[in-house]
Design a protein around this nucleic acid. Structure first.
Length: 306
DNA sequence: GGGGCTCATACTGACAAATA
DNA sequence: TATTTGTCAGTATGAGCCCC
């Protein structure tokens, strides 16, 4: 069989490759870049943001058109601006890449040192242990996971998302996991307030509840955001549902990304704390610190003998 | 000539409407 | 009534054409 010639597929005019050294954007694009930088500075505590998150902040704060074309343009400009070193690569997060790799060590001493570091930085007990219910956070948009995880991680709460509509495999395996819990499970859900967002939430709730009934588990769903009341409360931008979308839905739509990251963190943080017994949590944290110190002493002792 | 704009692509599941 | 089709959202990038 003749070898495939990749060069026959090469485009006549290449898209940008690597860094751009002489990027000369038009005036309108420069204005857009200024607004993007304002958004990135405003949310510097929550970086990196996804293109989608930047887009909805531009819509809310700078009246950027909320259209598919405008979003696609933003993605293209953001890519060029990063290639031109106008916007840091680290400021924007692109999802969708999977990577696997083997963990290697230089020798036994290095391995013990790594274990000591893990004990110091990563060892933790189940921080939800002893609570009357086990909390999970589920969000519609995969891009929001790291942002929500910053709120949930200190409390040992998992954040779940499979992007858009959730796969039946994910719902099945999570329902089984929920059913194995010693205490009832409560899922705090965050998603768009639009026809898809609402139907997704209802489908998720019904599906997991049905699986749990078979498996013998108890699960409750609580919609945390976006709620219709958030529109007035936080002055969110709304849009009518698309005329082509015939699913039942009343009122205006709001995207979850329309909520500023710090507001979203505040809403989720309050919801989490409202379901936790703080005294039990404090006891777990104290016990965790004690056991961590014990582990560090063990690995220090091993390291001195290696 | 080069940047901007538009369209296409990948893939999933739910829902509603159209068709068999 | 059952099956098929179209649309929706999420996310980002590349190709090709258009315009400054």
């Amino acid at each position: 069989m003749a070898e495939f010639d990749f060069n026959t597929c090469r485009a006549e005019r290449h898209a940008h490759r690597g860094f751009i050294n002489n990027w000369r954007p038009h005036a309108t694009t420069e204005d857009l870049i200024v607004h993007i930088k304002e958004v990135l500075f405003e949310y510097r505590e929550h970086l990196p943001l996804t293109c989608r998150q930047v887009f909805y902040r531009l819509v809310a704060a700078h009246r950027y058109p909320k259209t598919n074309n405008a979003y696609n343009k933003l993605c293209a400009h953001l890519a060029n601006a990063r290639r031109a070193r106008v916007i840091p690569f680290d400021a924007i997060r692109d999802d969708g890449v999977d990577r696997t790799g083997a963990q290697c060590y230089a020798g036994t001493g290095h391995f013990i040192k790594a274990c000591r570091h893990t004990a110091s930085e990563a060892f933790r007990l189940d921080r939800q242990d002893g609570q009357a219910q086990r909390l999970y956070v589920w969000c519609e948009t995969g891009g929001m996971v790291p942002q929500l995880a910053r709120v949930c991680d200190p409390f040992g709460i998992d954040v779940v998302s499979s992007g858009g509509f959730d796969s039946v495999s994910v719902k099945h395996s999570l329902a089984r996991e929920f059913s194995e819990s010693d205490v009832p499970v409560r899922v705090l859900h965050l998603g768009d307030h639009d026809p898809s967002g609402v139907h997704l939430y209802l489908a998720l709730q019904e599906d997991i509840t049905a699986f749990c009934e078979t498996f013998g588990g108890e699960v409750t769903f609580e919609r945390v955001a976006v709620l219709p009341s958030h529109v007035d409360m936080f002055g969110l931008d709304t849009a009518p549902p698309k005329s082509t979308d015939r699913r039942r839905f009343e009122g205006e739509t709001v995207q979850a990304e329309a909520l500023p990251p710090d507001t979203l963190a505040e809403i989720l943080g309050q919801a989490v704390k409202s379901h936790l017994d703080v005294s039990i949590y404090d006891q777990i944290m104290a016990e965790e610190a004690t056991q961590r110190m014990r582990l560090i002493e063990i690995f220090d002792s091993l390291g001195s003998k290696a």
